[in-house]
Structure formats: C-alpha cells, structure tokens
Design a protein around this nucleic acid. Sequence first.
RNA 1: GGGCGCUUAGCUCAGCCGGUUAGAGCGCGUGCCUUACAAGCACGAGGUCGCAGGUUCGAUCCCUGCAGCGCCCACCA
Length: 893
Amino acid sequence: MAEPIPDVTLKFPMQLEKVYEPQRFEPHWAQWWIDSGIYRADAKQAMEGHAFSIVIPPPNVTGSLHIGHMFEHTMMDVAVRWRRMAGAVTLWLPGTDHAGIGTQMVVERHLRTEGLTRKQLGREEFERRVWQWKEEYSGRIKEQIQREGASVDWSRERFTMDPGLSRAVRETFVRLWDKGLIYRGEYMVNWCPDCQTAISDLETVHEAVEGHLWHVRYQVTGSSESIVVATTRPETMLGDTAVVVHPGDPRYLHLHGKTVTLPLMNREIPVLADPIVDPKFGTGVVKVTPAHDPNDFEVAKRHGLPFIKVIGEDARMTESAGPYAGLDRFEARKRVVAALETSGELVRTEPYTVNISKCERSKTIVEPLVSKQWFVRMKPLAAKAMEAVRSGRIRFVPDDREALFFQWMENIRDWCISRQLWWGHRIPAWHCRNCGRMTVAREAPATCPNCHSTELEQDSDVLDTWFSSGLWPFSTLGWPDDTEDLRAFYPTSLLITGFDILFFWVSRMIMLGLEMTGDVPFREVHIHGLVRDAEKQKMSKTKGNVIDPLVIMDRFGTDAVRIALLLSAAAGADIALKEDRMEAGAAFANKIWNASRLLFLNMERSGVHGCPDGHVGCLSELAATEDHWVFDRLNRAIETVNRALALHRYHEAAQTLWDFVWREFCDWYLEVKKLRFRENSGSDAHWQATLTIYETTLRLLQPLMPFLTEELWQRLMHGAAENAQRPKSISLAAYPTASLDEAEPERVRAFELLQQVVTSARELRADHKLEPKAKLQATLSRTAFSKDELLAIERLANLEVMQQAQTTNARQGVIRSTPHFDLQIHANASGDKVRIVKEIADLERAIVQKETRLNDPNFNARAPESVRSKEREAYLAYKAQLQKNRALLEGLE
RNA sequence: GGGCGCUUAGCUCAGCCGGUUAGAGCGCGUGCCUUACAAGCACGAGGUCGCAGGUUCGAUCCCUGCAGCGCCCACCA
C-alpha cells in the first residue's frame, strides 16, 4: 500500500507550500485511492446495511473522454462520495461499451490510412484489430476516470463484451425469443448504404432540404384519359406496382380497378383505393413503390402487391431497373427526369421541401429497403416500463423529463436489433446448412435439433450495441446468476445520464430490466444537460471548440474543474462552459489552500499539533463570539448542502459551500481569528472551536473537491495524536449533519452587529476617500460589545472607539446609523451626504409600499398573521431608520 | 404536424412551497502589495424580472394570449 502522504509533506505536514499547486498532489491521491482499495464495495456488508449503488454510463471505446463525461462523472462522484460518507455501503461500477457501429467505423477509418479495408482482412482478423483498439482506448478512458477523481470500484470494472456480459446478452435474447418478443422477418428498415447495415429509427436524423415535386402523367390503359401523380423520388417509379387514390375521391371513382401504364417501364399497374391517400394533397394520386417506401410497403401488403427492388444495398439501381441498372440512385433520378421530360410525361416540376432521413453516423441519406432482420416487439415491454414510471418506482429528475419519456414510449415501434456488422455480439441463432432450420440457443448447438446435421452456421449479424447496454445495470452484477452483488446492489439507486440517450439507453434499460429481472434497474434517473462551449455551441471536433478535460485538469487542477462544472449544473440545464469559470474554481481552491496555510502556520506558532481529539463539535464556554457566529453559519450550510445533494441540486450545494467558505469563514471568521493569533491569545479552547469548524468544513467539501480536502485533511491528521477510530481517508469520515452545538443567538447577533459597524466604517471611508491608513474615531451607542468585540471592530475597521461623542456638533463628523447602533466617525471629512440622501429615498419608497399594504383592508383580512406581523415589524424598522437618517441629515445641514 | 423548454444586471446563469428594499460568478469603476491568498482585500455602479391581460390581500414565481429563441418527436406522396 502506498504511503498516504508524499514524502516531502510527510516531513513538514503543517507547512503548506506558498503556492497552491494541485498537480503536486492530485495524481498521488488518485493512485492511493486505487491502491488502498478504499472504494471497493463490500456486498456482504451492503446486504446488512444501507446500500447505494450506481453504474457508470459506459463510455464508448471509440475514443477518449470529453468534458461532458467529466461533468457526468463529477455529479456521480459527488452523489457517491456523499452517500459513502453518510454511512451507506456504496458501489460505483465503472466500465466501457463496445459501441458496435461507432467503433467499427473508427477502426475502419484507421485501417484506410494503412490502405486496408475490413474485407481484405476478413472477419476474424478485423475483430482482432478492433480488440486491440479497445484495449488501448479502454486503458486511456480508465486513466481519465482516475484523473477525474472518480471513486469507482475498479475491481468491478466491466466491458459490454466481457464473457459474463455476453452470456447475459444471449440469455436475454433466448428468453425474449421464447416468449415471442423477438421475431425475424422481411420488413422495411432504414438501410445505410455507407455503413452497409440496417439501423434503427433512432439512429436516423431528419433534415428538411429543398427538393422538387415532380408531376408525372400515367396513361390509363385503353383510354385517352390520364392521371398525374406527384413524387419527390422519381427514380423509385421504376419499381412501382400500383397507384392509389382515396376510396371516396369522386374524381377517380371510375378508375377503381382500371390499370395505368407505368412510364419508362411500360408496365401495366392497377389503380387501387386506399384511405392512406390524402385527396387534398397534390393530385390525390400516389404512386406505390412497395420496396422503397415505408408507406407503400404497408399499402402493398394490404393489397397483396408485388415488390420490385430497384435499388440495392449499395444504393445503385438493380437489374430490375432495366436501362438504369448500375447507376447511383441520384444519377438515376436525373436520368429518369430527363427521360420523362423528353417523352412529355413530366407535366411540371415544382420546388418542394422534403424531409430526408440521414444516418446519424455517416450522414448518408438512408435508403428504405426491405430486408430480413431481427426485431423486438416493444409494445408489451413499453407498457410495463410506463407503469414503473407512472407508479413512481422510477423517478425522473428533473421530473419534466418524464413527459418526454412517455411521449416516446406511447408511440414506440418495434426495434430492429440486427446489424450487418462484424463488431458486436453475434446473434445466438444457428442455421442448418442441411435442412435450413434455424435454432436459437444460449450456446452453439453441436448438431441440428431437426436433422442432426453438424453443418451449422451462426447467424452472421450482430446485435445493436444498445441491446447489451440495455442490460448494463444487472449484467455487470453477474446476472443471470443470482450473485451476491446482484442481491446487494440491484436495483441500483441512481442513474445519471444525458437526455440524448434517454430513448436509446434509459428506456431500454427500464424495459429490459423489468422483463429480465422483474425489477426496475434504478430508482432514480437524473437527466443532465449538455456541456456547451462559451458561445453555447455544441462542442464538436469539426468546429474545433472541444474542451479536453485532461488539458484543463492539468491547467487548473481537477478540483477546480469539478467545482466549476458543479457550479454551472442547475438540474437538467445545459451549461455554457467558459474558461473564467474554471479560473474562478482554481481561485476558490487557492483560497481554501491559503486559509489552511494561515491556520497551519498559527497552529505551529501556538504549539498546537494536528486536530485535537475528543469533544469535536462542541462550543466550550470559552468560545468567542466569532465561534458562535461561525457555528451558526456552518450549521446552516450543512443543512442546505445536505438538502441540495438529496435533491440533485449540485449547483446549490456548490454555491452554498462557496459562500460559506469564502464569504463567511475566510472574510470574517479568519479575519477576526487573525487578531487573536496576533495577540497570541489562541487558547486551546479557541483552537478547538476553530479546528472543529475547519475540519468539518473540509468534510463538507469532500464530495465536491476530493483531492484538496484529502491533502489538507491528511496533513491535519498527521500531526495529531494517533487514534484508532480515525478513518484513513477523509472520504471515509462521517459527512457533517447539522449536529454541531447550537450557537447562542445573542452572541451570533453580537457578531452581526460587529460586522455592520465594520462595514459601515469601510463604506464611509471609501465614500469620503479618506486616507486608507488614517485612523478614525468612532462612538458606538451600543455598549454591549465585549472587550474582545471592540478590539475586533477597531482593528478590522481601523477605528478608534470613543466612550462618547467628542463633539455634539455632527457637522464635523460623518455619521452612519442603523436601527441597532449609531456610529459617528470623526474625521476631517467634507460631510458628503449622498449616501444618507440615497438611503432616505430608498426607505421612503419601501415605507410607502408597506403602508399601502398594511392599510389595505383586504390584506388585513386575508393575509396570514405571520405575514402581517412580519410586514408590521419591517415597517417599524424602516420608520425608525428613516427618522434617524433624517435627524442625521439635519445635523449635517 | 405534434410535444417540451427558455426569455431575470454588460455576459453566463441561480431564484425550493407566491410574502421584508430580486442574488452569484465573470466583467466594469474607485482605493489598497493590510506578514494566508494581487488566483487577493475593501467599497461601488448596474435590473420597468420578454410584452399584454387575468387569478390573488400580494406575482419574477400561478393561468391565458402574443413575440423572440432553442430542443425533441414525426412514413403525407
């Protein structure tokens, strides 16, 4: 096991380097977290206690991680670290996805640079190459995840094509097949001529492009009459086998049952009636190309029309296209149009916007083709999934994403799961070369169950990559075996992922999880937004606006990037990531570092070594006013942070911590404490309170900034006495709950007054542009300040506090007054009244508002008493302050 | 064609159940190298909460309409 602290810091744990350099310790802790095995989940323990489990959305092994992954991982890590510290037995399971089509394409592209194609290599050799690629990239991804500080359990790392997960895939396939939920058949699918495979509906993107609507005349057989059909794809007419009209369309009633001659092909095709036709669109006559249009496919099946395939898998015209055979589909279109023009059968051409489907990956226009594919029947699966969400067994965060989920589920269509690729899970079906019979089985059968031939060949198709990802929450835990892990950690507690894969992945996990395990795969789904660039543009390699997480982690430190991402992460919202965010994050980390440096320096000076044992969280009788105040503020922060984390409001947690640490702990608490350090009055009691606050704050920050807090906490603990109870990492210590001692309200109030006096003095000094070093004299009407508090006021505001006003003539002084104290600052100031005048105006406005409200009988009759009394109180306070300000103003005039 | 979301300070965005004079970061202005931090400190300027109605004692928040922007889904030739 590695040493918990780098050697150099071991020697001088309390001497922080002057400059915050996260690069010095972040890699060290990342490594130690792995070597020490502290994030390894214990299934036995989990079954006894409270478990919290989460699986990583497996990144594709196509390449390295981008900033969106880091955003997602950071939120997951915060969730996991928080639950871990809160006492849950946690499992965060890491892994990667084989990403069938995506990986195959990048490897093929890579091969092309070597002048090779996959066909030249052959299937076996190609698969070997892809495995090589996978090894390289999953290794890179692993390093990146470690660098992010993700507290995953590497002993449970999985890959979608691991033997165990492959077994889960076959098990699922066979069960669905046996239930009749998987079928195979000739249907119309989206065919990508570039990828040379069928793709699912989800893998296509729609795009509106400017095209044409060509009107073509078809001659009615044995008549001088002709009809005109409109088409956006004239090349497909070569495969027409009918034209249809609406059954009730009076214009064409007399043509029902007649035939027309298909131009160019001189084929007789029937005129049919079908309600699919909209009589109001175009001419009300539609050509039917059963083999190349999804609508026409349905029509043809209803009417038993023949299918003529005129476009092949390579997007070139087939032999059936007669003279056009061999031409590319777009070239064929040109020639067909030209031919129709020549023959006079093209009546007219009009511009028309057409919706085309493109392959999401290759951007090639998808060709609807009839081919033999495997499908999953979705309706029955979707019904169960919707029920699980409706009943609340799965909750969405933010919950408006549910609408999206239902919208898709309600209109779900069968899922084409077969791909004509080489990289992926082979479909567990074997075809007998002898009798032709197909066998679906978990393992390769030795002989054909029908004819006992040994001439069996496995189906060459592979499964859609999402088929295996859909099993991820349970296949990774050992399913279909009833493993300890499965019992301990399934259903998983939470899934954090992007909306872009809600349908691809989340929905399928829900459906397959319910079907295979009988339980939901996760109880909560947090759908986050997209990380965009500073101009809110989507990041993409082609735009060149991609932010590489490794680069910015090197530059700013991981904690800084984490806090920057978290601060931007309003639930579900996209974030525009600017560099200044990360600079601010680094500044925050630097602030914490330096605050620690101040404390550590003074601990050494006071002879205090490390964190004191015992009575942590207590406010002793000797605790000072500022201790009471900061206990109060920290308790509030603890409460807010815990609530925010429970609701996945990471930005709120981050913001709360930021404000507490910077605006309260550093700006006020440490500033006052510095005075005590100077006086060398830091008694043990003071240190106890100070270190309690400090150490608790580190723990509160830990889930968000694990590296920095680990480094500081280890140093703090290193100097302290050994304690068997002490966990070996801050990430295993208890998360703060609002259980610190209650601060005394009177003393909290006293500190707030102190702040007001100090701030007022600063305002006046700035307003009157006084010499920064000029000491001012002040008289405080409130006498309740203790000696210590007066000292703090004097020092922080650079004031000399007088027993009473030195002059009764306010004209010589500058005065500031609040309802709670009067402050006269005597100086040779010009007596600028601007501030008082402005404040009087503000107060008058507020008072009018209050008066109107308080005088409104309806308000008095209907508003709750709690609101009314608050309003009255506020009104009186304004009134009092206004009077004082007026008096002051008079005095100045 | 359906559905969803957004519009708050110069910029990026918070604002949970409607209730004191609406917040943060960055940027901007002024003054400070105050022995933790110039990656800092202090002080400040800056908002008719998209527009128009409505509900309510009370609306940035709820409802309706409008305008602008964005996203998702979709087999009208």
